[in-house]
Every structure is written in structure tokens, then in C-alpha cells.
Design a protein around this nucleic acid. Structure first.
Lengths: 341, 1289
DNA sequence: GGTATATCTATAGACAATATCGTTAACGACCTT
DNA sequence: CGGGTCGTTAACGATATAAGTCGTAGATAGCCA
């Protein structure tokens, strides 16, 4: 039986949105799913298991469920007002549509769901292709959203958390500003560590985004390449003043040590506009001497970090790993602020 | 010609400071004295210990308020002035006269500075004159400048002094000299005497010429400090005149016998001569005096062979060498008279050593490196693991040419001798930067700069939470500051030798006179050096030097090639500049290479301690003004308030009015107590230290930080997170241990240097008036270890009472301090065997002393007691051990006295009683009672905890509760106690949180009165910090109804010290340096206050200001009675035999302090100080007042044709007050008739019942600032405590 | 219905610092009337 | 000679960074009479 799809007006009656913003207009959702062409990945939806994180008012969950009829659809949310609403929604006699009242922010919640209570048991797939039986939906448009997204990205790099099951596709709603950071291109204004990491470990696409005056900041190339569905802010609730975007994250197959890569990109991107030959010195004692010896390409050494592609960063990381006098990357932190003159 | 007079340069400086802080504000009209303060004088006939005089001064200050209006109009200008000054000074001393001249022009352009401009011009003239050969040129230059370039500027007597000095120097004939000087003296602004008072310009020979040769002035007109020098007539010739009775003050310093010795010094000098031929005459006398005393043959030999040449015999930082043991010699002397002459000889010797010490520190370090290097070279030792010093010497030699080259370039830029055209754009930029920092970089000898840079960087290792390095920002500032300090010291030394040049110090007595004259000279000079380099300049030169060091300093390194697994040797920079992230913000770090770190752990770096941070060998310069006292060659300020120009201004005003002499008196007593190192304790500690093992609070040697093994890559994120946390914890512990060991090392090494020496601690105050020694590493406020290392230099016979107190002291140190005194005595007596064992076998015995609360001090006391008990009459033992008397929860004692709260007073032993009350046990009991009640109601947590509550659990929290500990802080304290009982970290924290609530509630219950006062203080602070002054600046109000609050809480302590809470928003800016930009705060910026900190800090700060007053009062009284006195805030120390006297004194002083109702006086002071201030209130929209206000606003808004803003409201009210305070009766009437929003609210009277919090139904109004009613005072009479045995015990 | 209490959410701020980039103000050279 | 225009640059301000904040104030709900 179909899950109830409600009007924006009705859903807006839920008292607290906890700073999150959701696309509620069903027709836009349908348009998005048309564009996503999920059946191509999930040919047999009877085997499809979906983990729906921060489903909130559950509009997208309902539409998705009605459209693809996955074998299991777990909605994880712990926020009282939404839980109340979702409980009603999931009370329809549809076994696959299950509410799990735990906070998706806690790693603990997943361990309990999967390893302890064994309520959701995704299959483990190899790294040859995108996981075809497991999908993650999430809305990270709240305050903690950006941080959580970055951590999930690290999980993809480490192949832990949900990504231990394989290359699990994720459809994630994020703030437009976050999406811009993730999709920033080499040389671009917003190029930063997270976009390099996203480039390296995933294939990420902008699927949909909210109409606003900042759209152009995505860059023509991104808009042209991804052709996102554009929707109006009136299709969403609640108005937070910040636009939201939907990203499709496809983990790529890779075999890279995240920690070293992380260290190198983090440090180089601090001096994002300094030529490499100088910026290398900030990687450790004698960095300039070492890297300028190892890397012969003079032109490359004149480039600056913000212009580098992910594969160039990879190359530097490899050189770093082979450096006999490399610093201890795990000592790269500050302890408590203690000051005494 | 408009003339203004200034009698001496000190005044000049003070005026100059005033100008700097002065603000062109019209606030005077708001500050009509109301006579409120007069009312405060209270009981007639009671003496004023400072408050009355001081508060009346600070109430109507001669400078403006500190807020945006100051910040914008005044402060930016005063910042400009300060920057220009420091640049002017730098250029003058670097010899960039042209640039200096153009800076003068800029200074001249600042109108508000105009009156003080002549001082700057004089500085210029002084330097300029040195380049001339004919006095006429100087004359011409001056009159050209005064008439043409700076027409609004008048010369003063200092200018004339400069002219005279040069006239004497440049004129060849006596006639010419006479003529010039005559002319100049005729031009005197306020008399010849005034000209002659410039001892920093006129040299001693000048004075002599003027007085003796030219006979232009009479000897009586000379400044007092110089007069004896001239009178003795012993200037250039150096001939020893038949000893005339030395004039005035120094008469006492010499006994006739010594003078006699002076004259027939030859025969005795013979044997010494073979050993050392370098004694100066003065030192011969010292040696001679010493040899004349009744020493053992051995000691006489020591003295005879001791090198009294101070430059080669500063402090002994050498492990192998044993310095002469003055202390032992002193103790062995039999007669009082001998001891006195010994001390005066030692003091004289130490004068010279202190002088050397403060001036030669960097050279000493460099020499040590060179020495080690050459020694290694001669041994042919070229091993890879070179000794640290050798490495440093190599770096020094590599760095020096770079620095020299940079200095050269800076000079070239400054002299415009670069070929701008031929330079690349980058070099042009560089040169531009050089123009800014160049003048500062060319002041100090490049060699010294190199040494300073290296030392500073090594010292900063592992600071700022960076594991193997330091923050860049800190490093650059530290280096810059160190350079500046070096410059100041050199400058002082240079100008001193200028003034005293040609003065031959051949005679002993003459030397003493010179010493005295020098002291006067120094005081003037130090006070004058108010100019500080801007942070920016410090950062810039620091970064230049550091980047050069980074460039050249290399270390040998080993690493494993990850591919081939071969061990590879190589060379890497010893320092590396990089960044780290913390919470998403970047932090510049300067990392030190591991191999160097390793070496640093093993070696001692003590030579790096700046001498300004060591105890002094001579009595500190006595405090007599807000910036004069402490060390001889470094300026220290009375109050440590580096970033609060506001407090400095108040302090200055009060100090100039002479209202805080009581503070100076107390502080000087603290500084005059001589100390020495407890040699036996030092030996025990050294032994422990050298073992490298952890012992008591000394951590063991640790090799390097090893992190826990990393979890597998695909482990759950939570596991990764835990791993990271664990690592942080490890690193924290590691660096904690390292710094603890490092700190212990500093202490021991300093102690080693001062073994057998007599030393003093110069003190100053923190912003609340609490006294701290200026030497930070080694002082009696330190931990148990440093306290155990120190004893009084003077010894006093124990006597019966002393012996008893010594026993009590031991018992107290064991934590057995809540029993009646008799019991404590018997506690010690029952452990006689343990005491002997501990004293005689500290490390290989039973180690009873280690069980004490304060083991090191306990051991020291055991040793002292043991020695005493060995004697047939222990009362005859001469004891050096300080004995402590501590208040029982001193904060609460003050609260109880303030509130007259009998219950509280009883608890903290203000009320006489047979046995001491133990607050902590009492609170523990209350907590248990509460928990039991809760447990009975079925609270499981309570049931679980109720048996766990011990005195110790609550102790710290009760103690810190008075000092405003936060809920979180208290929870941590309790958790520290509980976590030993529960294994589960999280669980114990939960329990602690629960328990904290109950402890707080219990304390509150027990000290009801104290908490009422605490709340009252807090509420006052809150209202004050949320108040608005009437004449605020527009900028303050820029954001609607949320103005920036600018008023800090200000009060006057009973001793008259004005306290300004310095809590303001940080206001930092980015400054570009060579390495990176650094984020530093601008000391001149006046920022909005931090209301939360103002509120949270006030109650404890107020109490601290009281306990500080009590301490200083007790100190000066103890000094008066001839006691040696020291204090750690609320713990008072003296000789065992003097404890009884001290106990009387401190009780008297406490009573004296609290006889006045301090809270009432505080409220009156607040009412006066914050009169006419406004507060923002939210009241019920529907109330009558609210409607009136709304109507008025509407009306005015229509009239203005725009919304009526908060700024308008304030402006209107300001106008009204102005009119009301007017002299003109019609204006007064007009003011009385004026209706403003504020007047409407004020008319309504008490509107506290109308206050609302909800936003919807309330109206924001301005109301006059009112402070809450004082809580009622209880019946406790503070005089009772006179008889309380356990008040302090 | 009202008020004392406990829990919940929203919210700002301390990004306890620095590199970089865009905008604006200021300055100066040059040209035309 | 004045003024206007254009170009350059210094100066200032804004923004992003990393990636398990957190403390608090204010609102709301749960409580009782």
C-alpha cells in the first residue's frame, strides 16, 4: 500500500524543523528521480535496501518508497516532532517502511541497527561497481550537516561505516554552500581540501538545487555538466534563508591511504596560492629540498595548490609517503590551550 | 615668548603620559563631586590608609573615559604618538637624523601633543649635537627650528642643559665656555637649579666645571645626588683625598675602621696579588673587610683566592664548580657587629654583580658556546652528536653574516643609498618593508641579536600546546621583545657611562657616592623610557631574525627509506615553519626537529634565563611611583596590566597624588626580605633529579612520545575517534610531564646559581593588588619544591615559643592542621624518631616526610627541627626556616567579616574558640545529610554517593567556591576525587555533576551571609557592565538597541589602589611579518567590555583585593617591627620566634581593615562613580510609564521626521543633565522642565516590579543606573577575632 | 488557571588564527579645455 | 590653471578553513491547586 504523500501546507504544520530544510513538492521529487535513473543501478528493486537518514517529514521517503518499492526502507530519525509524524506515516501496513528512532549523528546508532539488533543487514559487495542492493538517502541541511558530510566522506576514503559494504551510493541533501565547496574545480575560488577529497574518493553530481541568485557560483562547467533540476524555494520547508542542493555521491574504487593524503592536501591548501616549490616547505623539515629533487617538472613546481587536480595531489602524496625524513603525520595536532608567560 | 615651567624631568614624563591618555571630552560637567565620598570618611579620627585620598582622586580623573570616543579621537592619536616616539627613538639611536627630523615634523603636526613636543625635540637635539663641532652650529640649528620649523614650540630648561653640555664640550677656551654658559643660564625658564637638575644630560665633569672652574653656579645649586661627588673634588684626577666625613646619606655605610683599612691596604694585599692581580680598589676593600673578620683559616683562604672581579664572577651556572659560600661565612660570624660589616661588604660587591648580571647575560651565553666549541675542537672531537652548545656556536657563526648583511641593507634603505631603479619588484617590496622595521633592527649589535634569537627560540620549545615546537606568533613577539629589552638595557648603560665618564673610581668612598648618584640617575632614566616598541615592530624584527635562523640552522638526521628500508643519513633544517589546524582555524607553528628536541631534553639551558627574571643580589629598587621599583636596569610597573591602559591611567593619577604610599611600603617590606638557598635541601633534590626517576611531584626523564597503535583502517569511525582522543591525552600528559620537569630543572639550576648567596625577590602587583615576585621561575610562591628550597638569610634564635611554632609548622605541613595547637605540638613530638630519620636519611631512610601534604617543606622543617633538638637547649638554635600562618579559608573570612555573619564567622575561626573549626568537614557533613535525605526519597544516586563523601572530596570546591569557581570547574575538581573511587570515567563524571549541585547548595546554606554579598557584588557588576555613559560615542550605538557596553567595574581598595577589571573583548588584528601574518592585539585599542567576565570576576576579585590589602598592611607593620616577612597571598611567613608577634599584627590589621563597613563604602563609591549612567530595562508595555514613554517617543519621532533612536534618547538626556548642572540659573530651570524618556522613567521611581523578560509584551526603556540594596549586615563584631587563636594558624 | 520546575530548542559566538581575495579609498599621472 | 579621467595601489573587510562544539538563555511542556 502506498505511503501517504501530503501537501506542503500540511507538512509545514510540524512545529520544529530543527534548522533543517526539506524539498516537499512531490512533482519536483518525481522530476529528480526521473533524472537520477536509479533503476539502472538497482535493477532488482526487490533486493534493494534503503537507509534513510534524517528523513524529517518523510516526503521524499514516501515518494521514493511508492515509486521503487524497495525490499526494506529504514528511516532513522530521533527528533521528537518528526518521530511523531513518521510514526503515523509508517503505521500504514507496509512492512518495508520502518522507523528506527535513533540519532543518525551517533555512530553508535548504526552499530546497533546493523551489528547488534541486526534490523538491517546490507549485503557486502566487491569494489568493481556501485553497490546494487543498498542505497543511502540523507538530509544534512541542518547545522551539523556539513561536518557530518565531511566525516562521511572520510568514511568513504577509509571504507568503514556503511561503506564497508561496498561502493554504496548516497543521495544527500546539503546546503547549497556545502555543495559548492564539494564541487569546486581546480583553480576555482572555492577549491579546498573537501573538494579534492570528494574528487579523489567519489564521483559526485549535482542533481538538484534551489533557485537563487548565487547559482552561478557553482561555475558554468558544473552546471553544464550536471544539468541539475532547479526548483523554487516555495517547494521547500522550512525557510531558513539558506538554499539547499541534492548531491548524488558515487564512491569510486580506490586504494589510497587517506591519512597521508589528508595531511598533504590539508597542509598544501593552506598556502593555496603559493607556488608548490615554496609551499612544500610547510610539509616538514626540508620539504622543499626533498620534493624539488623528487619532482623534476619545473613547470609543475610553479603551480600553486589550488590549481592542482586530485591526481596531482595523489602523485605528491606518493612522493610524501616515500620521503625518508617525513614528519610524523599523527603528531599533527595541538593540545589543550595552555598558556603561561 | 610663552613660557612653561617644569622643574624636573620626572614631571615632564608624567605630563606626557597624561597627554597620551587625555581625551578631549566634555565630561567634566557630568562629574560634579557630590560629596558622597566625603561622607565615607566615617568615624571621625580614624586614619585613612589610602582609600579616601585615592578615591577622591580617581573619581575626578584628569583623563577621559575609556570608550569609543577615546578610542577614535584620542587613542588612535595616542597610538600614533607612541609609534612615532618609538620610531623617533630608533632613528636617533641608529643615527638616521633626516628621518628622525621628519618624524619630529609629524609629531609636531599632532596638535594635542603640541605642549609636550619640546621633549621630543630635545631628544633630537641631544643626538644632533653629537655630530657637530662648533657650538654655534647648534645654536643656529635650535633657533632656526624654533622660529621657522616649529614656531609653536618653546625651548625649556632641558634644552638649555643640552646647550650647556655641548658648549662645555666644544668650546676650547675657558672664556668661551664661560660666555656661552652665562648666556644660556640667563635664558633659564625656571631658574638655574632647574637647568642643573638634568642629571641625564649634564655629566659629572660638567658639574665640576660649572661649579669649580667657571664658578657659574654654587655647589648648593647642584642636584643632591651629584653634590657629594663635586664636593669631594675627586673627579678627573682620581686622587684619594684625606677622608672627609662623607656627606649625608652615605655616612652610615662606612665604619671608620674600614676607611682606615682603605689607606694601608698594601701589606695585606700581597698574598692575594699573586693569585689575582685584577682587583679594583673598591674590591680590595671588600676583600680586606672580609679578611678582617673572624673566619676560619679555610674561609680566609677562600676569600683571599676568590675573584672579586664581577665580570668573571657572576652567578655560578656550572655544575662542576662550587661558588664561594657567603651564607656559611655569614652564619659562622660570632658578633652582631661582624655580621653587619660582612653584610655591608657583601652588599657592595653584589651591587656590582647585579649591574653585570643585568647587562651581560647574552654575552655570557655566547662565550659559553664558544668555549665549548673550542674545547671540542682542541680535543679533535667532531662526532656527529655534537654537544648542543657547539651546534649553537656554529649556528651563531652562520647567522651572523646574514644578520649583518640585513642590517647593512636596512641602513642603505634608511640612508637612501640603494639604486631603486635597478631592483626587481620583489626587492623593491622588500626595501619598503625594510623602511618600516629597519630602524629597529639597527639598534642592537648583530651578535647579540643572533644570540637572543637562538636562546629565545630554544626556550619556547614545547609551548603553546605544540608538541615539538611553538606558535610562530609567540616566537616572533618574544624575539622582538627580547631585542627591545636588550636595547633598553644597553641604552641605559650607554647613557650612564656618558654621564659618569671620566669619573675615576679609585677611592672606595668615592665609589659609594658614584653608586648612589647612579641610582638616582637610573630612576630618572627608567621612568623616562616609557616608549615601547609597537607590537608590529617587534613581530617584524622577530620574524626577520627567526627566518634567518631557520635558513641556516641545520641538524644531522637519520631516516628509513620506505622503499629500500635502508637507513639514510642526511641533513635537515633544525626549524621548520608550518601550520596546524585547531577547530578549523589555522595556527602558525615553528617546529623543532626531533633530533634537536632529543638533545634539548638532555641538556641544561639555564644560561638562557633572562636576568630580569632572576631574584636579585641586592635589595630591589624601592617602589616610590607607579613605574619605578624592582630591577635596576629594567622597567617594571607596579601593576601587571599590560593591556589595560585604563588601569594604568588611574594608577598614575593616584600614585602622583601620593595616595598609595601604604601599598609601596608593604611591597618594599616584601622586597627587602633576604633569602638564601637551603643547601641541604638542594643536595637532596639534586640527587633525586640526577637519578632521572620520577619522585614525588618531579616526573622522570621521558624519552619520546609514543602513540597508541592505530586501529585498522576500516574500523568504525567511533573507534578512530577514540584513538585520536587517546593520543591527545597522551600528548597532553607527555607535554605536561616535560614542562614539569623543565620547570623543576629551571628551579634547581637557579637554586644552584644562588647557593650560598644572599638574594631578594622584587615584587609587584597583579591587577587586583595581589603581590607577586617578579622572578617567575624561582620564588617562594612556587610549588612545594621551590618553597622547600628557600630559607631566610637571617637567622634568629628559636626560643621556647619558636620551637613550639616550628613543631606546629611541621604538623601543618603534614596536613594535621585542624587540631588545637597543643595537639599539633604533640603530633610533632610523637614523631621525633621519624623526624630524625627523615632529616638524617632523607632518601635512604623510612621516608616519613614523603607522607606529608607538602613533603619538601616538611623535610626542610624536619632537618631544622632535628638540628635544633640536637642541641642541649633547642631554644638556642638559630633558625632560618620560615614558619607559615594560614587563614582558614581566607576568602570566606573576608566575606564573613563583610557580612557580619556570626554563623559564617564561627565556621572560619573569626570567633574565638578552643579548637579550630573545620569548614570542610562541616560542609561534608551537610552534604551527607542532604544526600541521606535524598536517598530516603528513593534517589539512587544519592544512596550510592552518601558514604563516599569525605572532607577531601569537598575541600577544594568549598575553597574555590568563594573565588567564583564555575559549576563546570567544580565538577572537574570533584571528579578528580571521585574518579579514584569509580572506575568508569563517564559514570564518575555523572556522579560528580550531581554531587557538585549538593556541595554548592550546602556551602550556600552554611555561608548564607557570604552568598548574599557574593550575589550582591555579582548583580552590581552585571548592572555596571551593562550600563551606558551619557556621553557615549555614536559608534557605540551603531547597532540599534544593542549598544556596545564600555564601562568596566572600577573600585578602590582600602589601601587606595584603584582596580579596573581588564576584561574586554580581544580586538586583535592581522599583522604581516616575514614568515606569516600574525594575529596580535593592539594594546591601545579600547574595546567593548566582556560583560560576562566582568560579572563572574567581580566577587572574587573584590575579595582578592581585600586579602591583598590585608597582606600589605600586615607586611608594612611587620617590617616596622623588624620582622622578616614574606607572604603567599593568605599565608604569612616569618621566623619561628616572631610568629607570636606576627599573629598579633595580622589580627590587628584585619580588624583595621574591616572596622569600616566596606560594602557600604563600595556602594557609595559605585553610586558616585556611575552617577548619571543609564541602564537598559525591559518593562511591561502596558504600564503607565511605558505608555508615557511611547507617547513621547512618537511625538519626537514626528518632529524629527525619522525614527527616534536610542542615540537620540541618550543625547537628549545628556542635554538635560548638562543644563541641570549649569551655573546659569535659567539654564538650570530649562533643564528641570525638560522631559526626556529617561526623566519619565526616573520619575516613576521604583520600577523593578514592572520588569518583564518576555519580548512580546515589553518595552525597552532607558533608566538611570541603580544598584541593588546592600544585604543587611549581621551582628558579628570583627574586633572579637583579636582573641581568636585559630583565625590564622 | 497560574506558577514553580524540568526539559527542550534555538542561537550566537570564541573559528581563543591565517591566507587569500574582492572592494573601496586614495593617490598620482596625464590630458583637455 | 583647474579639473577630470584613468590606472595603480594600499588598505580594509569578508570569507573559508576542519570536521564529533558547547554552554546558555529562553521557551515550552508538564505539574499542581
Amino acid at each position: 500500500m502506498a505511503i501517504r504523500v501530503q501537501s506542503l501546507r500540511d507538512l509545514a504544520k510540524i512545529q520544529h524543523y530543527y534548522g533543517f530544510r526539506y524539498l516537499l513538492n512531490p512533482s519536483v521529487h518525481e522530476k529528480i528521480f526521473d533524472k537520477l535513473d536509479l533503476p539502472q543501478t538497482y535493477q532488482d528493486t526487490t533486493k534493494l535496501k534503503v537507509l534513510d537518514l534524517y528523513p524529517g517529514p518523510g516526503q521524499q521517503s514516501a515518494i521514493f518508497n511508492n515509486r521503487f518499492k524497495p525490499s526494506q526502507h529504514v528511516l532513522m530519525d530521533a527528533r521528537p516532532d518528526f518521530v511523531k509524524h513518521l510514526r503515523e506515516l509508517s503505521s500504514t501496513p507496509n512492512d518495508s517502511f520502518q522507523l528506527y528512532c535513533k540519532d543518525p549523528y551517533e555512530w553508535q546508532s548504526y552499530t546497533e541497527l546493523i551489528d547488534i539488533e541486526k534490523r538491517l543487514l546490507p549485503s557486502k559487495k566487491n569494489l568493481d561497481s556501485i553497490h546494487n542492493e543498498f542505497l543511502v538517502l540523507a538530509n544534512l541541511t541542518g547545522m551539523i550537516g556539513e561536518g557530518l558530510f565531511m566525516q562521511w566522506l572520510a568514511c568513504i576514503g577509509n571504507r568503514n561505516w556503511l561503506h564497508r559494504f561496498g561502493r554504496v551510493k548516497m543521495l544527500i541533501w546539503v546546503l547549497e554552500s556545502t555543495a559548492m565547496k564539494i564541487l569546486a574545480t581546480p583553480g576555482g575560488q572555492l577549491r579546498s581540501k573537501c573538494s579534492v577529497v570528494a574528487d579523489t574518493f567519489t564521483d559526485t553530481k549535482l542533481i538538484a538545487t534551489m533557485e537563487n541568485k548565487n547559482l552561478h557560483k557553482f561555475g558554468r562547467s558544473v552546471l553544464d555538466a550536471h544539468k541539475p533540476v532547479i526548483f523554487s524555494e516555495n517547494d521547500t520547508w522550512m525557510p531558513t534563508g539558506k538554499a539547499i542542493s541534492l548531491l548524488e555521491v558515487n564512491p569510486s574504487s580506490h586504494n589510497i591511504d587517506l591519512d597521508n593524503f589528508d595531511y598533504v592536501t590539508k597542509h598544501l591548501l593552506i598556502l593555496r596560492s603559493t607556488p608548490l616549490c615554496e609551499a612544500f616547505e610547510s610539509l616538514g623539515h626540508g620539504g622543499r629540498d626533498y620534493f624539488t629533487t623528487v619532482i623534476k617538472d619545473k613547470k609543475f613546481l610553479q603551480k600553486c595548490p589550488k590549481e592542482l587536480t586530485s591526481s596531482e595531489f595523489l602523485m605528491i602524496t606518493n612522493a610524501f609517503v616515500n620521503w625518508p625524513f617525513k614528519p610524523d603525520i599523527y603528531m599533527d595536532f595541538i593540545d589543550v590551550f595552555q598558556d603561561n608567560d | 615668548m610663552l613660557r612653561f615651567s617644569r622643574s624636573c624631568s620626572r614631571l615632564l614624563v608624567s605630563k606626557r603620559l597624561t597627554s597620551q591618555l587625555r581625551c578631549v571630552s566634555q565630561t567634566a560637567f557630568l562629574r560634579k563631586p557630590s560629596g558622597n565620598i566625603d561622607r565615607l570618611s566615617g568615624v571621625p579620627g580614624r586614619e585613612d590608609i589610602g582609600f579616601l585620598k585615592s578615591s577622591s582622586v580617581s573619581m575626578s580623573p584628569n583623563f577621559g573615559p575609556f570608550d569609543h570616543s577615546q578610542a577614535v579621537a584620542g587613542a588612535t592619536e595616542s597610538r600614533d604618538i607612541m609609534n612615532l616616539w618609538s620610531l623617533l627613538e630608533a632613528c636617533l639611536h641608529s643615527g638616521y637624523m633626516e628621518r628622525a627630523y621628519s618624524i619630529l615634523k609629524s609629531l609636531y603636526a599632532l596638535k594635542s601633543h603640541r605642549t609636550y613636543f619640546i621633549d621630543d625635540y630635545n631628544k633630537f637635539l641631544m643626538k644632533y649635537a653629537e655630530t657637530l663641532h662648533d657650538i654655534k652650529d647648534l645654536d643656529k640649528k635650535l633657533f632656526h627650528d624654533i622660529q621657522e620649523t616649529f614656531p609653536a614650540c618653546e625651548y625649556n630648561d632641558k634644552t638649555l642643559a643640552i646647550l650647556i653640555h655641548h658648549a662645555l664640550k666644544l668650546s676650547s677656551s675657558t672664556e668661551a665656555k664661560l660666555e656661552h654658559c652665562k648666556t644660556y643660564f640667563k635664558m633659564a625658564v625656571s631658574g638655574q637649579r632647574s637647568i642643573l637638575s638634568n642629571v641625564d644630560i649634564l655629566t659629572v665633569p660638567n658639574y665640576k666645571t660649572l661649579a669649580c672652574d667657571l664658578k657659574l653656579v654654587s655647589i648648593n645649586e647642584l642636584p643632591a645626588a651629584v653634590r657629594p661627588l663635586i664636593e669631594s673634588g675627586n673627579i678627573v684626577t682620581g686622587e684619594v683625598l684625606p677622608s672627609k666625613q662623607p656627606s649625608e646619606t652615605n655616612a652610615k655605610a662606612l665604619t671608620p675602621g674600614e676607611v682606615a683599612l682603605d689607606r694601608n691596604i698594601e701589606p695585606l694585599d700581597k698574598d692575594a696579588k699573586e693569585l689575582l692581580a685584577v682587583d679594583t680598589i673598591g674590591m680590595k676593600v671588600v676583600r680586606h673587610t672580609l679578611l678582617g673578620l673572624s673566619f676560619s683559616e679555610d674561609q680566609k683562604k677562600q676569600i683571599a683566592s676568590f675573584n672579586f672581579d664581577t665580570s668573571s664572577n657572576l652567578l655560578n651556572f656550572d655544575q662542576g664548580k662550587e661558588n664561594i659560600n657567603f651564607f656559611e661565612m655569614f652564619c659562622n660570624l660570632k658578633s652582631e657587629e661582624e655580621r653587619r660589616s660582612f653584610e655591608s661588604a657583601l652588599d657592595e660587591f653584589n651591587q656590582d654583580r647585579q649591574h653585570q648580571l643585568e647587562n651581560r647575560a647574552t654575552d655570557a651565553a655566547k662565550e659559553r658556546w664558544r668555549h665549548d666549541f673550542e674545547e671540542a675542537k682542541s680535543r679533535g672531537d667532531l662526532s656527529i652528536q655534537k654537544k648542543l652548545n657547539i651546534k649553537l656556536w656554529e649556528w651563531f657563526n652562520l647567522m651572523l653574516p646574514l644578520v649583518k648583511e640585513e642590517v647593512r641593507r636596512c641602513a642603505a634603505v634608511a640612508n637612501n643609498t640603494t639604486q631603486e631603479a635597478s631592483l626587481s619588484p620583489q626587492e623593491k617590496k622588500q626595501n619598503k618593508a625594510r623602511q618600516e622595521y629597519g630602524p629597529y633592527l639597527t639598534l642592537v649589535d648583530p651578535e647579540k641579536m643572533c644570540v637572543i634569537t637562538i636562546l629565545e627560540i630554544l626556550k619556547l620549545n614545547s609551548t603553546g600546546g605544540i608538541i615539538e615546537g611553538m606558535r610562530t606568533a609567540r616566537a616572533v613577539i618574544s624575539v622582538g621583545k627580547a631585542i627591545e629589552m636588550e636595547f633598553r638595557a644597553e641604552l641605559l648603560l650607554k647613557s650612564e657611562s656618558h654621564v659618569f665618564k671620566d669619573v675615576n673610581k679609585k677611592s672606595h668612598e668615592f665609589k659609594l657616592m658614584v653608586q648612589r648618584a647612579r641610582a638616582t640617575f637610573r630612576s630618572i632614566k627608567i621612568e623616562e623610557s616609557k616608549v615601547l616598541w609597537p607590537q608590529e615592530a617587534r613581530a617584524k624584527i622577530g620574524s626577520i631574525l627567526i627566518s634567518m635562523l631557520i635558513h641556516i640552522a641545520k641538524v644531522k638526521v637519520e631516516g628509513v627509506d620506505p622503499v629500500t628500508n635502508e637507513v639514510i643519513k642526511g641533513e635537515a633544517p633544525a626549524f621548520s615553519h608550518g601550520y596546524q589546524y585547531h577547530n578549523g582555524s589555522k595556527l602558525g607553528v615553528l617546529k623543532i626537529h626531533r633530533s634537536l628536541i632529543h638533545q634539548l631534553n638532555g641538556e641544561r639551558l639555564v644560561a638562557a634565563v633572562q636576568p630580569q627574571l632572576l631574584p636579585m643580589l641586592v635589595k630591589p629598587r624601592a617602589w616610590n611611583s607607579w613605574n619605578s621599583g624592582g630591577y635596576y636596569y629594567t622597567q617594571s610597573t607596579l601593576i601587571r596590566s599590560k593591556d589595560s591602559p585604563e588601569q594604568v591611567a588611574y594608577l598614575k593619577a593616584v600614585s602622583d597624588a601620593g595616595a598609595i604610599d601604604n601599598v609601596y611600603r608593604g611591597l618594599n617590606v616584601l622586597g627587602e626580605t633576604p633569602w638564601t638557598v637551603n643547601r641541604r635541601m638542594f643536595n637532596v633534590m639534586s640527587q633525586v633529579w640526577n637519578s632521572g626517576k620520577p619522585f614525588l611531584d618531579i616526573p622522570g626523564i621521558q624519552d619520546k612520545l609514543t602513540l597508541t597503535p592505530q586501529p585498522p583502517r576500516d574500523a568504525d569511525p567511533s573507534i578512530h575517534r577514540e584513538w585520536k582522543l587517546k593520543n591527545k591525552e597522551l600528548a597532553n600528559e607527555f607535554s605536561g610531564n616535560r614542562s614539569a620537569r623543565c620547570d623543576a630543572n629551571y628551579k634547581l639550576e637557579i637554586a644552584r646559581a644562588f647557593l650560598g648567596e644572599k638574594f631578594y625577590f622584587p615584587h609587584n602587583l597583579d591587577f587586583r593588588g595581589r603581590a607577586y615576585p617578579l622572578s617567575p621561575h624561582f620564588n617562594h610562591l612556587g610549588n612545594d619544591m621551590s618553597r622547600g628550597l628557600m630559607i631566610f638569610w637571617h637567622g634568629k634564635r628559636l626560643g621556647t615559643s619558636g620551637l613550639r611554632w616550628l613543631k606546629v609548622h611541621l604538623s601543618n605541613l603534614f596536613g594535621f592542621d585542624k587540631a588545637p595547637l597543643e595537639d599539633r605540638v604533640s603530633f610533632a613530638e610523637s614523631h621525633i624518631d621519624d623526624i630524625r630519620d627523615s632529616a638524617e636519611h632523607p632518601l635512604d631512610g623510612k621516608g616519613w616526610w614523603k607522607e606529608a601534604d607538602k613533603p619538601w617543606q616538611a623535610l626542610a622543617t624536619c632537618m631544622e627541627l632535628n638540628e635544633a633538638l640536637k642541641m642541649s637547649n633547642p631554644g638556642d638554635f638559630v633558625s632560618h626556616q620560615p614558619v607559615h600562618q594560614d587563614g582558614t579559608c581566607n576568602g570566606l573570612q573576608h566575606y564573613a567579616a563583610l557580612g557580619g555573619d556570626i554563623e559564617g564567622a564561627t565556621q572560619v575561626n573569626l570567633v574565638p574558640s578552643d579548637r579550630p573549626q573545620d569548614v570542610y568537614s562541616h560542609v561534608a557533613k551537610l552534604v551527607i545529610a542532604r544526600l541521606e535525605k535524598a536517598a530516603a526519597n528513593g534517589d539512587e544516586t544519592a544512596a550510592l554517593l552518601k558514604d563516599k563523601i569525605k572532607r577531601k572530596v569537598v575541600k577544594q570546591t568549598v575553597m574555590t567556591n568563594v573565588y567564583g569557581v564555575t559549576y563546570i570547574g567544580a565538577t572537574h575538581q570533584i571528579d578528580k576525587q571521585l574518579s579514584t573511587l569509580f572506575n568508569d570515567h563517564k559514570r564518575s563524571y555523572e556522579l560528580s555533576k550531581y554531587l557538585t549541585k549538593h556541595v554548592f547548595a550546602s556551602v550556600r546554606e552554611l555561608f548564607e551571609g557570604a552568598h548574599l554579598i557574593q550575589d550582591w557584588l555579582g548583580e552590581c557588576a552585571k548592572r555596571i557592565s551593562k550600563s551606558i555613559r551619557l556621553d557615549v560615542d555614536e559608534k557605540t550605538l551603531k547597532n540599534g538597541n544593542k549598544p556596545d557596553f564600555m564601562s568596566s567595574v572600577i573600585w578602590t581598595t582600602p589601601l587606595g589602589l584603584p582596580i579596573v577589571q581588564p576584561y574586554r573583548e580581544s580586538g586583535k588584528r592581522q599583522v604581516a611579518t616575514n614568515l606569516q601574518t600574525v594575529f596580535i592585539s593592539d594594546p591601545f585599542a579600547i574595546n567593548p567590555i566582556n560583560a560576562r567576565r566582568q560579572k563572574a570576576g567581580f566577587p572574587p576579585n573584590f575579595i582578592h583585593s581585600l586579602d591583598a590589602s590585608h597582606m600589605l598592611l600586615s607586611a608594612s607593620e611587620c617590617g616596622e617591627r623588624g620582622l622578616d616577612f614574606a607572604a603567599v597571598h593568605d599565608s604569612y611567613w616569618t621566623h619561628a620566634c616572631d610568629v607570636d608577634t606576627m599573629n598579633v599584627v595580622l589580627r590587628e590589621q584585619f580588624i583595621k581593615l574591616h572596622e569600616v563597613d566596606l560594602i557600604e563604602r563600595l556602594k557609595d563609591e559605585f553610586d558616585e562613580r556611575y552617577k548619571n549612567y543609564l541602564q537598559i530595562l525591559k518593562i511591561d508595555k502596558k504600564s503607565e510609564v511605558a505608555t508615557k514613554v511611547t507617547d513621547l517617543k512618537k511625538k519626537l519621532s514626528q518632529k524629527l521626521g525619522r525614527p527616534f533612536t536610542l542615540a537620540d534618547e541618550i543625547y537628549m538626556e545628556k542635554k538635560r543633565i548638562q543644563l541641570l548642572n549649569s551655573e546659569d540659573a535659567s539654564e538650570q530651570a530649562e533643564g528641570a522642565n525638560m522631559v526626556t524618556t529617561v526623566s519619565l522613567v526616573a520619575e516613576a521611581g521604583d520600577i523593578s516590579n514592572l520588569e518583564k523578560s518576555s519580548d512580546a509584551s515589553c518595552l525597552v526603556v532607558l533608566a538611570p543606573l541603580t544598584l541593588p540594596q546592600i544585604p543587611p549586615k549581621g551582628d558579628f563584631d570583627v574586633r572579637e577575632l583579636e582573641k581568636s587563636k585559630y583565625f590564622f594558624s
